[in-house]
Amino acid sequence: MRIGKQDQALTAIATSDADSITVRGYDLCNDLIGQIDFSDYFWLLVIGEKPTAAQRKVLDACLVAIAEHGLVPSVQAARMTLAAGPDAWQGAMSAGLLGMGSVVAGSTEVSGRYLADVMAKADADGTDLETAAIESLKELKAQRKKVPGLGHPQHSDGDPRANKLLEIAEEQGVSGRYMETLSVLAKHAPGIINRPLPINVSGAIPAVILDAGWPLEALKAVPLLARTAGLAAHLYEESLRSIGFIMSHQADLAISYDGEISEINKAKSA
């Protein structure tokens, strides 16, 4: 069964025959393997052309910045999954990646789309970014919603990763409308929301990588690829010295049961 229009049975990414493999117009064995770094290859695969030196620098910085941040929920999910199934790395890795939603790690995409929405609002209203940003912040406050890309529960005085990414982007001459929009939001948000809201890493990543030329539609690929590396480290360590069941046990200790108790158990505890 076909759903929707399906008259473009084409791909521009890769093809192969008995003698060669072609990726984005390059011969895989002669032009790419041993000739290109993985970050360049990642950019080439997604966008279809090799990055400039500045684009490579910004992409590398973003990947390093978000690859690891300790025992966050996605890491815990992956490690507990591997503890329960030591032979299923793919399952444990999947568990970790599936845990990258709109709150942790996957928030990069949410922030990027929010920046794009503020920019689109300015264009649609024929106004400037500052006016559009202020109106958007007031709307978020009225709806009691968080400001994507701003604030961090641990780095309340400023996310050092975000500061470094913005610094690198400036050094590389990567500065555009996304970074400008983020800066304007960060300027006005604390006064409108009435609490400290520094730029966090999930705000800085989309601002710098989108200004570098990365497509908004593929934004989530950046933290996904980065966290895959971090998860690999945790899964390797989990295979050597497991803490998966320790984390599970600590959850049992930390969370109390407040549901119904059967009459038999009531009698036992009496």
Results as ranks from 00 to 15, higher is better:
48 G>R: 06
50 K>P: 11
173 G>E: 00
120 A>H: 05
234 H>R: 15
72 V>A: 02
7 D>Q: 08
52 T>H: 08
50 K>Y: 11
142 A>C: 04
79 R>T: 14
240 L>C: 12
100 M>I: 04
7 D>T: 13
15 T>F: 11
41 Y>P: 05
242 S>W: 05
41 Y>S: 14
81 T>S: 09
20 S>L: 09
38 F>W: 14
67 A>Q: 11
109 E>T: 12
255 I>K: 05
133 A>K: 06
241 R>Q: 12
17 D>V: 07
6 Q>V: 15
21 I>A: 13
178 Y>W: 13
112 G>M: 02
169 A>K: 00
196 P>A: 04
222 V>T: 08
5 K>H: 13
121 K>M: 09
108 T>S: 04
188 H>V: 09
144 R>M: 02
85 G>W: 13
48 G>A: 07
250 Q>G: 08
72 V>C: 00
98 L>E: 00
155 H>F: 15
24 R>K: 04
209 I>D: 00
227 R>D: 08
129 L>V: 14
148 P>H: 10
195 R>S: 05
153 P>T: 14
15 T>M: 10
107 S>T: 07
193 I>K: 06
52 T>K: 07
54 A>D: 00
233 A>M: 12
217 E>F: 03
112 G>W: 04
1 M>C: 06
60 D>A: 08
258 D>H: 15
55 Q>F: 02
19 D>A: 10
190 P>S: 12
15 T>R: 15
164 K>N: 12
24 R>Y: 02
254 A>E: 10
159 D>V: 04
226 A>Y: 03
268 K>A: 03
231 L>M: 10
10 L>G: 01
194 N>M: 08
115 L>D: 00
17 D>F: 10
79 R>P: 07
268 K>Q: 04
137 L>A: 05
127 T>I: 05
155 H>S: 01
74 S>R: 03
199 I>V: 15
127 T>D: 01
237 E>V: 09
230 G>W: 07
163 N>C: 06
150 L>R: 09
219 L>Y: 09
234 H>F: 14
262 S>R: 06
138 K>M: 14
252 D>G: 06
36 I>C: 15
108 T>V: 15
269 S>A: 14
80 M>R: 15
225 L>D: 03
81 T>K: 01
184 V>C: 11
194 N>C: 06
181 T>W: 03
192 I>G: 03
62 C>K: 00
93 M>P: 09
228 T>F: 00
160 P>Y: 08
141 K>V: 09
45 L>S: 12
205 I>N: 07
195 R>H: 08
179 M>T: 12
5 K>L: 15
83 A>T: 07
195 R>A: 06
253 L>S: 11
